[in-house]
Write a protein that binds this DNA or RNA. Structure first.
Lengths: 346, 346
DNA sequence: CTGAAAGCGCTTACAG
DNA sequence: CTGAAAGCGCTTACAG
């Protein structure tokens, strides 16, 4: 089957190629009647402008890029990215933008991908995930003047646009909730320490624990995998002053932690309360169901996509705050059991 | 920053644009010394050929497409697609191919996406997931002559290339394993009934149960969600002749089933054995860890990608069988407890 | 409101 | 082995 071109449409409509182009792009230069006739013919013969020709004539590539820098094992198990992508897609496809996805091994490879995309004019803009402190990607994207939206923050985004959610506030709320239940020994299994949002959560955790006079507010780092979640939990639970509550930086580690606790003969929530970030259907599949911090990730992705399209359109874009994760109490949290309550601080 | 073009490279190298093109594409027409010099200059000034210009000159778009037709909720929770994408990417990026991802609402939308991609010349080929019986996408792709690799089968792929895995054999192995343990009442919670691989599994299940003289080999359909897995399990376990073993078509439903069993006071594996498809890290996070059918999904994706690139290159490609899922016995399966053994058939 | 033409940045026959 | 040129299918000033 031969692909129809703009010339085919022009011939059948009895107009010039220019007229077809104007009609298709909603530009002035054709009468309303002609425009309608041209559109009908394009539709009839299944014409869509060649994205290559369009991009080459100085218009946009009508594509944006997303590079993901996580090993396959972790990518698969974290619902976050797929949910984010779903939300991004919903917004993009409504405006006929394509999403170009690339899985990369490390930051250097990711930067190389940005440079290549830019040189190839393959994308009009990019999303940046997993922001780090002094992130090397930020100055590169600024230098290339490639429109970008950082998914994360606040801060450390240079002059790039960004969307973020206040994890620190959510963490404080969680600690206060646990303290209200009577917990005094709270620990945390954190995500990758080099990620900014991990750092922000850790700082908020230490601050609120200090403010509330809680001792031993330790954060054990991890790579988000179930194995590390289990290992961290074992370490925490076998320490002399074991915590009565643990906050996990993702759902998978929380579920692993729940297993470990049960394995060690500790009742949840009787002996140990558990809170998971990234509330997902998984949290409700286990017993007891997990108290979790959740928010609408597809909506977050949609927000990021709108922001990026605005940046590409040349609109002034800055920092956009999305909703803060909210706590959904479920069966995995309760007041600490009297018999196992930690000794009162003195 | 101005993007370098082939003319910039040609000028600095003191050769024609044609020579640069030949050098870059490994074509004859330039001496080895000149080629090396040109490549060095391209590297130095960060030149990559414009994908649009390249695509427009009749070369390929250097991109392939993947349309996913599942709701966000399900996409996120199934590690399958992200693992598949990881494997696909590994192969594509090694050959500088981009992956264009699109989430669609239904088959009609998916077909529209294929037609648009084709008309726009946006991709050189596509992957087709979730094959159905009499799948409407197959004749469309044949008509468009858009290179495609169906991920699924066997059969029902028309003249399209495909990669598949023998789910029927894996299912038979699983049933035989359960029967060897002493189970006589085996049920199954299946995936979406309209998907071909669900159908093939169901047929294999019914066949092997008939061959082995097992009664009540029922398959309850589902949408792969934890909720439906839980509902189906409740229904199965409260039937008068409840099964002593259940096979689930994915890991999430198996975990939900485990929860339901424990909720209903049934011991796993004492009162109920559980087997999950799609062995994933999740299966080892729960208690007891789940006996599961697994295979290397990133490798499957890589295989599919190689196959698609071969099809795009015009090589004759057909049907490729990938490894069959293998059963990993873990704590969720055991001989049925004597007291709860089903009455002997007579 | 419409038509003829240049130009985007490549690839690829075609001469030399 | 190299250079000059056509052409891919659009968009967009520029004349009419």
């Amino acid at each position: 089957m031969k692909r129809p071109t703009i010339a085919d449409v022009a011939r059948r409509a009895g107009v010039s190629k220019g007229a077809v182009s104007y009609a298709l792009n909603g530009q002035p230069g054709v009468s309303e009647a002609t425009r309608r006739r041209i559109l009908a013919i394009a539709e009839e013969i299944g014409f869509s402008p060649s994205s290559a020709a369009r991009a080459l004539s100085g218009a946009t590539a009508k594509a944006v890029g997303l590079a993901l820098c996580r090993p396959a094992r972790i990518l698969g198990i974290e619902p976050f990215f797929m949910e984010l992508i779903s939300g991004v897609e919903a917004e993009l496809s409504a405006r006929s933008y394509a999403l170009t996805l690339q899985v990369v091994a490390d930051q250097a490879a990711e930067i190389a991908v940005y440079r290549r995309w830019w040189a190839e004019r393959r994308v009009d803009g990019v999303f940046v995930c997993d922001l780090r402190l002094d992130d090397a990607r930020v100055p590169v994207l600024e230098e290339l003047r490639l429109p970008a939206v950082v998914i994360g923050g606040p801060g450390h985004t240079g002059t790039l646009a960004s969307v973020w959610s206040d994890d620190a506030a959510a963490l404080v709320e969680t600690v206060e909730y646990l303290v209200a239940l009577g917990h005094r020994r709270i620990a945390r299994v954190g995500g990758l320490p080099e990620l900014l949002h991990t750092r922000l959560r850790t700082e908020a955790f230490e601050r609120v624990c200090r403010d509330l006079g809680l001792a031993g507010a330790v954060t054990v780092p991890s790579d988000y995998s179930g194995e590390e979640g289990a290992r961290a939990t074992r370490r925490l639970l076998s320490s002399p002053n074991r915590p009565s509550a643990v906050i996990y930086d993702n759902d998978v580690m929380a579920i692993a932690g729940l297993s470990v606790a049960q394995e060690m003969g500790l009742a949840v929530p009787g002996d140990l309360s558990i809170v998971a970030w990234d509330d997902s259907p998984l949290c409700q599949l286990v017993h007891p169901p997990l108290t979790a911090l959740g928010r609408d990730i597809p909506a977050y992705g949609a927000q990021a996509a709108r922001h990026l399209l605005a940046a590409i359109a040349g609109e002034p874009v800055g920092t956009l705050q999305d909703e803060t994760a909210h706590l959904t109490p479920r069966g995995s949290t309760a007041p600490p059991r009297g018999s196992t309550a930690p000794p009162r601080e003195r």
